[in-house]
Structure formats: C-alpha cells, structure tokens
Design a protein around this nucleic acid. Structure first.
Length: 355
RNA sequence: CCGGGGGUCGCAUAGCGGCAAUUGCACGAGGCUGUAAACCUCGCGGGCUUCGCCCUUCGAAGGUUCGAGUCCUUCUCCCCGGA
C-alpha cells in the first residue's frame, strides 16, 4: 500500500510545497496536481484528445451522476469509464457525497437516513438509495483509481449540532466504505480517500480526522467549504505526510497556489471549466472577462504568456466575438485556455520535483 | 381617392382612464469553488441629499378629465385591401 504514494521529497521543500506522486493502475500523477471535473464522463466541451494536448494528468468522474446516467450496466460492458470515454490515464471519482449537500440538503430532492440517501432522479422520477456500499460499488464498476468514501457534507451555515452529526455520520459511512472496498478484489492497487468534515471547528476537524485515521485510509480530503485559511491549514496539519492530502472542490488559481504551500497535494474544481464557459479567463495578467465591451477591438492574445491553442491562434477581439454570437468555439477555446493555465501553474509548482 | 390597421425607452412587443410604462432581444456590469450551471443576478429616459424624491417621455398639435400612452379633433408618416 505504501508504494501507491510517494511524498519523500517533502522534507527538502523549503516553500512548504510537497512534491510527490500518486501511483495508480493507470499511471503516475505528479503532485501537486489539479484534476478537472468530468462529471458525466466528459470535461465539458472537450475531447480526450484535447485533454491530452492540454496535459491533463487525471480527471474526476462523478459516480453519483454516472450511476444514474448511463448506469452501471453500460459501464460494465465497457470495462469501466476509461474504456467508455477512451481516457486511459488515472481517474478519480467522487462518491456522491457532495450531491447529498447540493441536491438533497439544499434543493430538498431527497432525504438522508442513517443508512444512506434516498432520492429520486429529477429527470426520470426513478427512486434510488445510495448507501456507502453502493458508492463503493459504483466507483469500482467505473474502475476509478482513486475512490472517495461517501461522506455527509452540510451547508456552510449549518449549526453546531448539524456539524457534529456530519462528522459522526461521515465516520460511520467511511467505515462501511472501507469494509466494502477491502472485501472486493477489484480494489487491488486502488486508493481510498476519506473526507474530513467539521466545518470551521478545529475540535471537530480533529475529531473527524482521528476517527477516520483509526479506520485507516490512503488519503484524507478536506470536506465542506473552506471558509478561512486557518481551518484549511489546521486540517492539512492533521494529515500525516505519507498520506495523500486532497483539497476537494477548490478553487481559483490563487487559492490552489496558497493551499499547495500549506501542503495539500491534490485539487479538483469546476471553476476553470465553468468560468471558461461563462467567459472568465485566467491569465498571467489577471482575470479577463472576455465579454466585456473593452475587448471588442483588442487584437492581442488573451494571455501573451500562454502556449494554448487559443492564445497562440486567436485574438481577444475574436474570442469576444465568438462569445457575443454564442458560437460554441468560444467557450471551448476558453476551456482549453483555463485548463492549460491550471496545468502550467501546477507544472510551475512541481518544478523542484526530483531535485 | 375610398375602406381598414398602426406609429410606445436601439429593435420587437404589452398597455384599453392612475404609468417612468410590460415582455423578449440587444446592450452594460457582476457572480459562479467534490457541476441539475453554454447558467444565474442586477442595471438599461435624465438627475438627485437614492429604503425615497424631482424632471422630461408613448408620431405632432390642440381638447375632454382631478388625472391621458390610453378618450375626442386635426395634422403627419407607415402597412394592408379596393378603385
């Protein structure tokens, strides 16, 4: 199990950044790493070929959404999501824990019971019951390399009682996930990550980590919304240096850089792709909201320092135009750019790897 | 020339006595953080001491009315029929 992760270089890092690697059945991911979200088995608007060109090391699939569509049977027929989407590099999956919060808790589309989550598919009306065991089954069928336990996040404005409950239930479900994972031969060579809950409370974060550590996992993730740097830094400090430290669902470039320096290894976020689709581009010169009228006649590239397809081929004026007329090439090129921006940022952060 | 319809904030629309005036598009700005998001929010006559107030607006001019985009008269322009 120890050779799945390698953070030996941590001791030599003076900037706090851990340079290491995650070894999976589908290859090695150098860390710190950013992983774009391919929720339904595709990074929106991009092909696997695009992802290769951009230099994406790993993608995240959402086992909750893939369970509903296309369903496990079809994925089995393709020997996993990699074959289905023709992505043969490492794959990370989320369990559906976040959907507990976003769909069930916030949008009242189901209910959480002690055993799992009851909900209806909003498109078909079909009833589902997601248990910790089902979450593992989903992810193993998808053939994920890095699995995440089913956790129980709560709203950022939850009260103390809710937050304690979130920790308790997350531990309970994590244990069941651990057992299901260990009792399945398909888990060979794969990693299982647990999620630390506890909102802004150091006591709860510590309690959550300790309960999970007792069960034992390959890595630990920060669950819920990171509301201040203090709690994020405190939480990363709880995780031993030989374990994978996964900052879930975060964030904007400046946050990723900051969290990397705190010692987090792995990141995923919808921000670069969603914001790209909405016309917000990250550049070495700061944010560019390409729909703004000031770019109408701007013949410079979006980012003079970028080597992506957008920046080496087209002007700001052209991208502005594409967005104005809702030509899908616009959001697509913007997605390529933002992801390339993230990839290059991560490469910069990994620069001392092996030294 | 006769008959009918119509001119409303860039364009298109609603409005049938209490209206600075509907909705869509366009335009302006902002927000998105383990994706029900190619989405959502706000603004869009002018000004101000901006939880409100004051100007100027619905082709033009006059009239009726406490009050008119809305009713009446004339003028003007556009569209559709018929000569």
């Amino acid at each position: 199990m120890e050779d799945k992760l390698d953070f030996r270089l941590n001791d030599t890092a003076k900037d706090g950044i851990r340079r290491g690697q995650i070894v999976t059945p589908h290859g090695v991911v150098k860390t710190p790493a950013f992983v774009p979200d391919a929720t339904y088995g595709a990074v929106r608007l991009l092909s696997v070929n695009d992802l290769e060109n951009i230099g994406i090391p790993m993608v995240l699939g959402n086992s909750y959404h893939l369970w509903l569509r296309p369903g496990l049977d079809l994925i089995r027929q393709h020997a996993g999501l990699q074959d289905f989407m023709n992505w043969h590099k490492p794959l990370l999956t989320d369990s559906g824990g976040y959907q507990v919060y976003s769909l069930v808790y916030e949008k009242k589309m189901g209910r959480v019971v002690d055993d799992g989550i009851e909900f209806r598919d909003h498109l078909t009306g079909d009833k589902y019951f997601l248990t910790p065991e089902q979450a593992i089954e989903n992810q193993l069928t998808i053939n994920s390399d890095v699995l995440v336990v089913l956790d129980y996040p709560v709203s950022p404005d939850a009260n103390d009682t809710d937050n304690e409950y979130s920790v308790q239930r997350t531990t309970k479900w994590a244990k069941r996930c651990r057992i299901a994972f260990d009792n399945d031969s398909r888990s060979e060579g794969k990693l299982l990550v647990a999620v630390i809950q506890g909102a802004n409370s150091k006591e709860l974060r510590k309690q959550s980590y300790e309960e999970l550590a007792e069960i034992g996992f390959d890595g630990y993730a920060f669950g819920g919304h990171p509301e201040n740097d203090d709690i994020v830094e405190y939480t990363v400090g709880l995780i031993p240096k030989e374990k994978l430290r996964y900052m879930m669902g975060s964030g904007v470039p400046s946050d990723i850089e900051k969290y990397t320096k705190m010692g987090w290894d792995l990141f995923d976020c919808v921000i670069p792709t969603r914001n790209a689709r909405h016309g917000l581009l990250y550049t070495s010169q700061g944010d560019v909201r390409i729909t703004n009228s000031k770019y109408q006649l701007d013949k410079s590239p979006v980012d003079i320092d970028c080597d992506c397809e957008l920046c080496t081929t087209y002007t700001r004026a052209y991208l502005h135009h594409l967005f104005r007329v809702k030509e899908q090439l616009g959001p697509r090129l913007a997605s390529i750019h933002n992801l390339r921006f993230y990839v290059r940022m991560m490469l910069r952060l990994q620069v001392n790897y092996g030294s």
